[in-house]
Amino acid sequence: MTAPPLGKDLVGLEDLSADQIRLILDTAEPFKEVSERPIKKVPALRGKTIVNLFFEASTRTRISFEFAEKRLSADTVNVAASGSSVQKGETLVDTARNLEAMRIDMVVIRHPSSGAAEFLGNRIRSNVINAGDGKHEHPTQGLLDLLTIRDKHGRIEGIKVCLVGDVLHSRVARSNIWGLLKLGAEVGVCGPDTLLPRGIEELGVCRFRRIEEAIEWADVLNVLRLQLERMEMGFIPSVREYYRVFGVTAERLEKAARPMTIMHPGPMNRGVEIDSRVADGPHSVILDQVTNGVAVRMAVLYLLAGGRPELADAAKGAGGPE
């Protein structure tokens, strides 16, 4: 049995069909079990070289990708922008071409500019995986959020998911919205007007002005990180006021008609966008998201890793697998 192809790169969920997204989620299921084995490693990507090219700080995503790569037996190299030739003024394409000249197979890239992953994917032969590009997308985060919702609720179709907070600047929000809508979820957003993109209703997303309304409507709250520099930039008056008006608190959730699944992409600002009692509460799946992140990234790496169909034909003549 074979699966439909995924293409060379993973740039965003906007470019994927519902079937392709489901394929990644279904492929992630068996990879969850690999991380529970006594020897957490399978030889699927043996001999592949993967470069993690991080032009922006990241702990969780970089480590999660690195675990995923290592558990598939790939060889990995980490390149950070600081302390590399990037600081000396080398362009993105030159950096990548130099890496390619050393015969690599895949690049995982995080970059502060929207569109950087696609730009790179169009210029090098290696597979490119977007690990977050500016305000554009963070597709593997979107996928792990989808997988976590599916685990918790048994399906995605018809589930009401509300993204809370700084939707405007969030690539996580964008990947979530595309993925959720494609798989038939209902999507809402809630936050201060200054942090919600204008015209977002045109995508079929509901807009909630008050967090209480969002809580009454939703099955799942995906609480986004509030970057503290947003205050200096004038998007919110103060962190304390934000917490008072939009904070996801235990008191607010108690009034909900049903238990609410709580998600957060991390890193959390406790007492700013989320109450500690909620983050650590019984309905929080925040650490499940982190566990699923490794499985989803293994699935993406496995599905993208360059198969060589021309060799498959030769193998068929010689018997092939039974």
């Binding site: 074979t2 699966a3 492929t27 496995y302 198969g307 060589r308 060799l311 498959a312 193998a315």
Partner: peptide, 10 residues
Amino acid sequence: DLETVGPKPV
């Protein structure tokens, strides 16, 4: 033969 198969097996 994982290297040689085109679309990845489920």
